[in-house]
């Protein structure tokens, strides 16, 4: 039994080895190598200069995660209350944007948010003052929320749907008000979904790159942009790029570990 399971996993094991483990080892190797090919810690000492970029990336990713949660949880809860056509339509509307390439979606946001874009045309039509949001960190956060919202809603929805109806009925039978039932039963039971939603928004959020270039005007540089710049951008330094990637991964792992402590005692936590 055990052997057969191993065999079935073989394609994925090979895949993992080729495309996850080996690249990771290469990243580690490059991070500790200088341009002369020798072992060095120099790349990491250079990193100190990029504290602002690290700070901005984690701050914006956290902000986007909080907004996604604030918007996504009520939506997921509402969707779980619905049945049939309504839920299916909501699901379709949620998924629809994901069928469009992320670049196109972000370009669309660019033409909406620009100073003379659709939003400001609408505002001036309504005789309201224009907003200057394009090329600010706020625009980047908005772009991230838009792109990652489904990743917050879907896991929460799945978990809420799976809550045993009899548990809720029991709480109601015992005299719990609607609010108490939600607070004492549904919310705690949906935490695993929240946790995977947070993970699935926060982790890609930290390493976002193209959104910040298009909506941030290349001024609110994020870690993803900094890394891209070292490999394919206007400066070529894969050693520094690897060091940044490595440190970013470590920080993300630590934040996830901290997150998981909150969810201790819950089952099926990380969906990565």
């Amino acid at each position: 039994m055990k052997k057969r399971g191993g065999l079935l996993a073989a394609p994925y094991t090979v895949w993992m080895a080729l495309f996850t483990v080996i690249p990771m080892l290469l990243v580690v190797y490059f991070a500790f190598t200088g341009e002369d090919g020798r072992f060095t810690f120099g790349n990491f000492s250079q990193l100190l200069g990029y504290g602002a970029v690290f700070g901005r990336s984690f701050w914006l990713a956290a902000l986007a995660t909080v907004v996604c949660l604030a918007v996504g949880y009520p939506l997921a809860y509402a969707m779980s209350r619905e049945t049939g056509a309504v839920r299916n339509t909501a699901m379709l509307l949620l998924m629809l944007p994901m069928w469009i390439n992320i670049l196109l979606r972000t370009y669309a946001w660019m033409s909406i948010l620009e100073n003379k874009g659709l939003l400001n045309q609408l505002l001036s039509f309504l005789r309201l003052p224009p907003v200057r949001i394009i090329n600010t960190p706020a625009a980047v956060a908005l772009g991230m929320v838009y792109n990652y919202l489904p990743f917050m809603v879907l896991p929460i929805l799945t978990v809420i749907q799976k809550i045993d109806g009899s548990v809720i009925e029991a709480a109601q039978d015992l005299g719990g008000s609607q609010f108490t039932v939600f607070k004492r039963v549904i919310l705690p039971l949906s935490l695993p979904g929240v946790l995977s939603g947070v993970t699935m928004v926060f982790v890609p959020g930290v390493s976002t790159f193209i959104i910040s270039q298009l909506l941030g005007g290349g001024k609110s540089m994020m870690l993803g942009d900094l890394i891209e710049m070292q490999f394919l951008g206007s400066t070529y330094n894969p050693y520094l790029g690897s060091a940044i990637s490595l440190v970013m991964m470590v920080i993300v792992l630590i934040s996830m570990a901290v997150m998981n402590r909150f969810g201790e005692g819950e089952e099926e936590v990380m969906v990565l």
């Binding site: 200069g49 001024k219 900094l226 206007s234 400066t235 330094n237």
Partner: peptide
């Protein structure tokens, strides 16, 4: 130096 200053400017 260009690469270093450019990354510093844009960070």
């Amino acid at each position: 130096l260009y690469a270093e200053l450019w990354t510093d400017l844009r960070k």
